[in-house]
Simulated scan of single mutants.
Amino acid sequence: MFWWRNEVQPGVSVAFTDTGAGNLALHVGDNPGDVTARRARLDDAANLGNRSFQYMDQVHGNEVALISSYGPGPTADAMVSTPSGNQAAQPLSVMVADCVPVVLVGDAGDRGPIIAVAHAGRPGVASAVVPATVNEMRTLGAVNISAWLGPSICGSCYEVPEQLRDEVAAVAPAAWSSTSWGTPALDLPAGVRAQLAEAGVTVEYSGECTLENESLFSHRRDSRTGRFAGLVWTHD
C-alpha cells in the first residue's frame, strides 16, 4: 500500500502510496464507491481514527488553500493546515501519476507542526506553486520547513517539445533536461528542488521515476491510469 512511509519527526508522518493502494482519484473514470472505499482503507492504514485525509480538485495552477478541517475538496494545487487550539492540523493528500507530489512540514513552536502538500506538474513548476506554498506556511508562522518529494517522472524520461522545454526553463532553469535517447525533456523534480533550495527549504527525500516503476501509476505509460497519493498527518 505504501511505496514509502516514515515518521519524519515525532508525531508527524509522511507517506507515498503505490498501486497496491489502488486508484485514489475520482476524476479518472473509476467507480466512485470503489475510490471512496480505498480512501477509507488508507485512512485506516495511517491510523487516523475518526479523521480522514483531505483531497483537492487539482487543476495545474498555483492556488494554495488553507484547510482547518475536513470538508469538500478545494479547487487548488496546494493545501496548508495549521493546528488551532486543541485541534491538530488536518491530514492532507496530493494525487499524482507523473507530476511531483510535494509534502512539507514546518515548526510552529508550541502550536505544533504546520503541514502542507503541493501538486507540481509542468504548469505548477512554471507558475511556482511550491514557493507559493512555502510562503503561505511562513505567513502562518512556520519555521525550519523541510520537504519530501514523492515519485514522479524523471528528467531522462519526460520528453517534451523543445519550445516547451525552453519556456519552462526560462522560469525554472534547473528543469532543463534531455531524455536518455537525446530529445528535449523536463526534469520536474530538479526544478522543484531548486525552487525549494532558493526558498531555504531542506529536501529530505526525493522519490523514484514513475515511468520506470510498474508499482507506481504513470500517465505517460498509460493515459487511462489511476493516481497515487502523497500524504502527511500528525499523530500521538
Results as ranks from 00 to 15, higher is better:
H27E: 13
V28G: 02
V28W: 08
V28E: 10
V28F: 06
G29P: 00
G29I: 00
D30S: 09
N31E: 13
N31W: 09
N31K: 12
P32R: 09
P32Y: 03
G33L: 04
G33V: 03
G33P: 03
V35K: 01
T36K: 13
T36V: 15
T36C: 07
A37E: 11
A37Y: 04
R39T: 00
R39S: 00
A40E: 14
R41W: 06
L42M: 07
D43T: 01
A45F: 04
A46F: 00
A46W: 00
N47V: 06
N47S: 13
L48R: 02
L48Q: 01
L48M: 04
G49V: 05
G49I: 05
G49D: 04
N50Q: 15
N50T: 14
N50G: 15
R51H: 09
R51T: 07
S52E: 11
S52P: 07
S52C: 09
F53Y: 10
Q54H: 08
Q54D: 03
Y55W: 14
M56V: 02
D57I: 13
V59E: 14
V59G: 08
H60V: 06
H60T: 09
G61S: 04
G61H: 05
N62F: 11
N62G: 02
N62D: 09
V64Y: 01
V64D: 01
V64R: 02
V64W: 02
A65R: 05
A65W: 03
A65P: 00
A65S: 10
A65C: 06
L66W: 07
I67H: 04
I67W: 02
I67R: 01
I67A: 01
S68I: 04
S68K: 12
G71R: 08
G71S: 05
G71K: 05
P72C: 05
P72R: 11
P74N: 07
P74T: 02
P74G: 11
T75S: 13
A76Y: 07
A76R: 07
D77K: 05
D77L: 08
A78K: 04
A78N: 02
A78C: 06
M79P: 07
M79H: 02
M79T: 06
M79Q: 13
V80C: 09
S81L: 07
T82W: 13
T82C: 14
P83Y: 07
P83Q: 09
S84C: 11
S84W: 12
S84E: 14
S84H: 14
G85Q: 06
G85S: 06
G85Y: 10
N86Y: 09
N86W: 10
N86V: 03
Q87N: 12
